Amino acid sequence: MSETKRREEICRFGRSLFERGLTPGSSGNISVRLEDGGWLVTPTNASLGFLDPARISRIDAEGRVVSGDPPTKEVPLHAALYDTRRNAGAVVHLHSTHSVALSMLPEIDPRAALPSMTPYYLMKCGLTALIPYYRPGDPAVASAIMGLAGKYSSILLANHGPVVSAETLEAAVFATEELEETAKLYLLLRGLNPRFLSPEQEKDLVKTFGLALPGSAH
């Protein structure tokens, strides 16, 4: 896919996420890795609903901004995922309501922020890590993500929101949406003693679909 098409794709998915209320105002950011090792990323203070393809920031393989508007302050967290997940081709970070709410609950396991509630959650997100709160743009968030050693494609930033990587932008968007819907399910069922997937059902999904789940949660 050409760089022009990738820019258009970022704008198309950004608008879709914005129009469905998954990241309000100028919150959230999207990046896509390019063949030359650089990447495209949405600008700072830009609404995902009103992106201009020509103004999307372009960063080279050395991390230098070479064109476009100044990039999002969250560049370090995107870079950390690309550095630790070699197959990642895109990263999506949102401020989606239910995922943020989930990140604030006291009982959340940092190694598995959500239980195995549905097959599609495991298939699209795997397990979700929770990392502690850092102020937006703090380079320390990159260190926290690096500390996960690339084991998680799906991460919650405490009191902030989800950040998800995948091989393509479409896959990253779909996984982020699945995470948000599963967080919503968890909040709806909290305290009602719901029936989650059994270990045997998890193992069947792992075997059938070749899932790579972090071993620490099993």
Rank of each mutant, 00 (worst) to 15 (best):
M1G: 14
T4A: 15
R6S: 13
E8K: 10
E9A: 11
E9T: 15
F13C: 11
S16A: 13
F18C: 08
G21A: 07
T23Y: 00
G25K: 01
N29K: 07
S31Y: 02
V32K: 04
D36F: 00
D36W: 00
W39Q: 04
V41R: 00
L48R: 06
F50I: 05
P53D: 06
R58Q: 11
I59V: 15
V65I: 07
S67E: 14
S67A: 14
P70E: 01
K73Q: 12
V92W: 04
A101V: 14
S103V: 07
M104Q: 12
P106M: 01
E107S: 11
P110Q: 05
P110G: 08
A112P: 06
S116F: 09
M117G: 10
T118Q: 09
L122V: 09
K124L: 15
L127T: 13
T128S: 14
Y133K: 10
Y134G: 04
R135Y: 04
P139T: 04
M146K: 10
G147M: 00
G147W: 00
G147E: 11
A149T: 07
K151Y: 01
Y152D: 02
Y152G: 03
L157D: 06
A158C: 10
G161R: 04
S165V: 15
S165F: 00
A166W: 04
E167A: 13
L169G: 12
E170H: 13
L189W: 11
L192D: 12
N193F: 08
N193Y: 09
E200F: 00
D204S: 07
V206L: 03
A212N: 14
G215T: 13
A217M: 06
H218Y: 12
